[in-house]
Design a protein around this nucleic acid. Structure first.
Lengths: 243, 243
DNA sequence: CAGGGTTCCCAACAAACGTTAAGGACGCGA
DNA sequence: TCGCGTCCTTAACGTTTGTTGGGAACCCTG
């Protein structure tokens, strides 16, 4: 894995979050990043742990989730290359949820020590990273709305469109057909429904020729109907730093 | 309203978030805060706006919420004195949700300009404020779990216990009887259910003598059963900065 | 204290979603 | 290629939640 490619992915993401000066980019470039490979379905950090690093997703998909006492799991977010899903652990020392790979992944670990040193030295970088965690927060807000207010079909449509929108910005082609490597059980955990009902909803959207979700891929069949179902408005993603 | 009291409330909250040095406290003390009174049920900032200040809740209750195209509203969080509900607008310039008073409130407005100057000068304060927004994020995660995984009775129980736990830390007595000034319609909007169903659930918990919620107040009747219903674990609130 | 608005309360019925159970498709390794 | 495990699929039935519509209690103001 070429270190420059890793750096480019990080930079593209952070530049999406906000503008950076040359000196800041140079400083980011000096960050030590330990690259490691992870199998699918393995915990990167678990609830209750005190991680010493935050991790950049270089390749693959990850999710964050919480398990409640009764054993049920809620998926909180889906993460794609270029994102730093557990940046929050820099200042929230004990994990309150799990971070897990969905597919085999390449991860870049950045120590909290080096991140802290960098943010102490470079206020611009602090603001960019802070802003990144605030966007994370905005996505959680929308996820609450999704689970709380939309019917199951709308929830699924919304998650599909959010993922596509975010994939687009990373420079990956995400047209009518793209990767969403969740099993139906995991889709249920993301939407707050049972796997049986997830299957019903997927089946319905397939039969109505709105969207086809199978074998970890999404095929959009009817853009207009999908948009209507999802009521998707990407403002909450704050993808344009200048506004 | 005594300026020192306002400052004390802010400090208690931030000290709960993390430790501060004397120089930092002195710098915070210099922050200009414009105190204003707000009626109940009025927007402080609305979705789409670009606020120039963040606001400290001094007295009263506020909520954050989002309205979707179909007109339904989802309440995202409840805020109590000492908190800064829209700190995120410091770096997320356009609001993606509403901030509204629940009761008549006293608010302290702090300009983004002065906050930015302060965070540029004092890395400790930056970290404390950043951490505050990260706790906000952690609470959203738990809210997702609440709405996504728990049955309606459990959701209500959880919100009640969360609010009580947070009130306790502000130094307010919040024993078996405390204020929760939400109408049943608003409780429904917080839990992702209809007002009719909210009424059913409240009635059920009252009849089972677990908790009585009426006229904006909560009376805990059976601590043990309430705790079992809510499965409340306050770790996600990150109330102890040292861990 | 009269009136009007808001909030609360409830019943009957409809729709969405959960539970249980079971069979089939698919992919992977022996 | 067979066997095994995971994932998908479906049906029947039960429970939770939504909808509609209405009436009672409460509160504020005139």
């Amino acid at each position: 894995m070429d270190r420059e490619l890793v750096f480019a992915a990080l930079l593209r993401r952070l530049n999406t979050v906000s503008g950076l000066e040359d000196a800041d980019i140079a400083a980011l470039h000096e960050l030590p990043i330990a690259i490691r490979h992870w199998e699918a379905g393995r915990a990167i950090v678990s609830d209750g742990e005190r991680p010493t690093d935050s991790c950049l997703v270089i390749e693959g998909f990850c999710i964050r989730s919480k398990v409640i006492a009764s054993g049920q799991r809620q998926i909180l977010s889906i993460h794609i290359p270029g994102e730093i899903p557990d940046l929050q652990s820099l200042h929230l020392h004990r994990m309150d949820h799990d971070l897990i790979t969905l597919t085999a992944s390449t991860l870049g670990f950045i120590s909290h020590a080096s991140l802290r040193a960098l943010t102490r030295a470079k206020p611009n970088i602090t603001e960019v990273l802070w802003r990144d965690t605030l966007i994370d927060s905005a996505m959680f807000r929308e996820w609450i709305v999704n689970v709380g207010q939309r019917p199951a079909t709308g929830r699924l449509a919304h998650i599909v469109l959010e993922l596509r929108r975010r994939l687009e910005v990373t420079g990956r082609p995400a047209g009518d057909n793209f990767e969403m490597p969740l099993t139906q059980e995991q889709i249920g955990e993301a939407l707050g429904i049972t796997p049986v009902h997830a299957n019903r909803v997927i089946k319905q959207l397939r039969e109505e020729r709105i969207v086809d979700i199978s074998r970890g891929r999404v095929t959009v069949l009817d853009e207009a109907k999908l948009g209507e179902l999802a009521q998707f408005d990407d403002r909450y993603l704050h993808q344009n730093p200048s506004l």
